[in-house]
């Protein structure tokens, strides 16, 4: 089969099979939530920090968040790919010892390579999206579509909603109260906002 003609449904079915084969759903979910959370809090920190220091300029915010997102994305990809690949290779080698065979051309090795790559993609995209989505209002502000105060407010509301959403998702995963997990996530964002405000304020008054 030509690689161009492989239907998407086949690729998705294969992906689902590889993930279930290596029981990788859990680790991929963990990567997604942890890194999305990192991205969201970074974005909240940058926006509040800029507001406190009086540099609430859309150009500054957009370039700072873009730089931070790219750095998180690239480090996430490289770090997760190398770590996951090493872990998966170790598992395959252990399995080879138990089976007394070489698994190089087996579906197990194929799934290991695929899962390492998928983990890297998730690890890089989730912080990238987590920090870029809340800063979208500043992109709009940069284009002159909305004012800076509205962009600031909208950015914090988006970050808050995404934190709540992540918490709800965690609650759904563990089968406990979605509201409780949503509140935990939201309060973490609030804690970052308060800390950055206090530290920023102290630096401002100190200087």
């Amino acid at each position: 089969m030509d690689s161009d003609s492989i239907p998407l449904s086949y690729v998705l079915r294969r992906a689902r099979y590889y993930i279930s084969l290596l029981k990788a759903g859990e680790i991929l979910r963990r990567y997604f939530i942890m890194n999305m959370f990192d991205g969201l809090l970074t974005s909240v920190g940058v926006v509040i920090g800029a507001r406190i220091s009086g540099a609430l300029n859309p150009k500054v915010i957009v370039s700072t968040v873009l730089g931070a997102s790219l750095a998180m994305g690239i480090s996430g990809f490289a770090g997760a790919f190398m770590t996951e690949r090493a872990e998966r290779i170790r598992e395959v080698k252990e399995l080879e010892r138990s089976l007394f065979t070489n698994l190089d051309n087996s579906v197990i090795s194929e799934a290991s390579r695929y899962v390492a790559f998928l983990a890297a993609i998730i690890d890089s995209l989730s912080p990238l999206l987590g920090s870029l989505i809340p800063s979208l209002p500043f992109f709009l502000s940069l284009m002159g579509l909305i004012g800076v105060p509205l962009a600031f407010l909208a950015s914090l509301i988006i970050a808050g909603c995404l934190l709540l959403g992540l918490g709800f998702y965690l609650g759904k995963v563990c089968g406990e109260s979605k509201l409780k997990y949503g509140a935990y996530m939201f309060l973490s964002g609030l804690a970052v906002a308060i800390l950055v405000t206090l530290i920023g304020g102290a630096i401002k008054w100190g200087g």
Binding site: Y17, S20, L21, L22, K23, L95, S98, L99, F100, V107, I108
Partner: peptide, 11 residues
């Protein structure tokens, strides 16, 4: 035969 535990007998 001997198979890895991860591999489902259904598949």
């Amino acid at each position: 035969a001997l198979k890895p535990r991860e591999l489902s007998i259904i598949e």
